[in-house]
Amino acid sequence: METKTKSRIIVFVFALVVWFALTDIKDYQEALIGIAISMLISFLTGHFLIANVASQHLIKRTFHFLLYIIRFIWEMIIANLEVAYLVIHPMLPIKPGIVKIKTKLTKDSAITVLANSITLTPGTLTVDINRNKGELYIHWINVKSKDIDQATKEIGERFEKTLTEVYE
């Protein structure tokens, strides 16, 4: 099957599930409207979901994605406790600055997920991305190292390993 059609069907099913979950269906008319709207959505925007043919190892990738989510939630809890501590502390012990880190990820979606994860995890915020060089500019609330390799180790590597397994 063509990738675009496949992508549209996935979007259609997903939109329909969301519609049925959001509305308490009492009438067949509501279901019909849901089907019509889902078809419209999947026809207009469905081909954006899957850009290239799905690669192999779907189960392995899903497993690594779940691992990644657990990791991510854990890091997020730590991040929040850290910020809470900083904010309550009367001296505000911060040492902010913008550092540069390297990434080996190449796909757009992978870099997006990496940048968003960095933003939501301890003390770091993605400011900009230089995609040609594979570099991310990170605002760090407590700079531990100005060196690019050291900073990469501190910030990026937590997620990069798992994300490489998921996306490449």
């Binding site: 911060i94 040492k95 902010p96 600055g97 913008i98 550092v99 540069k100 940048a115 968003n116 994860s117 933003t119 939501l120 915020l125 993605t126 400011v127 900009d128 500019y137 605002h139 700079v143 100005k146």
Partner: peptide, 28 residues
């Protein structure tokens, strides 16, 4: 939320808003 934060911080830096004085490095 992270996407918005990225957009705001990037726009702020591009329009020349400086980092706080206690900042120690600005590679960007």
């Amino acid at each position: 939320a992270p996407t918005a934060a990225h957009a705001v911080s990037r726009a702020a830096h591009r329009s020349g808003i400086p980092l706080a004085k206690i900042s120690i490095v600005d590679k960007y």
